[in-house]
């Protein structure tokens, strides 16, 4: 399974990011979410959304093997095992692997909980099997 996005449908509201932080940390704080929304305004007037493709490149380089697969087939960070080395961050092709020591004492990423999809009013986000997705 994988999270997909159609950026043309994104209205930049950030509901997905609040929901994400609530799932990952039990907090309401979009700076602690695993999605990125890049607004491009005033020109050309579009949003660009970055989401995790579950490629696993982050897990492959983690020296602590702290990035593990969950029951949904998604890579997640075991917070207790993360040593904040940041080896994973540059490996992420979508820039959605996060270490911000001022905000959290572990790295974080999308664990495919699906809450972002539930909040999105414009159906810009969805979860689908990798091989069947029509994007």
């Amino acid at each position: 399974m994988q999270l997909y996005v159609d950026s043309t449908k994104c209205s930049g509201c950030n509901a997905c990011r609040v929901a994400c932080s609530l799932n990952l940390f039990g907090e309401s704080n979009p700076k602690k979410s695993a999605l990125v929304i890049k607004p491009h305004f005033p020109v050309p007037g579009v949003y660009e959304v970055k989401v995790c493709t579950q490629c696993g490149d982050c897990a492959a380089v983690c020296p602590e093997e702290a990035i593990k697969l969950n029951s949904k087939g998604a890579w997640y960070v075991d917070f207790d095992q993360c040593n904040l080395c940041e080896a994973c961050v540059p490996e992420c092709p979508e820039d959605v692997m996060f270490v911000r020591v001022e905000l959290a004492n572990a790295a974080w990423k999308c664990d495919l909980c699906g809450d972002c999809v539930d909040m999105c009013g414009t159906s810009a986000l969805w979860i689908e099997e990798k091989e069947t997705a029509g994007v």
């Binding site: 209205s11 930049g12 509201c13 950030n14 050309p44 414009t122």
Partner: peptide, 19 residues
């Protein structure tokens, strides 16, 4: 209209961005 533009947390964005 080119983009629907929402305020924070809005599932029904009324903002219309135009060119």
């Amino acid at each position: 209209v080119i983009t629907d533009k929402g305020c924070f947390g809005c599932p029904s964005p009324c903002g219309k961005y135009s060119r």
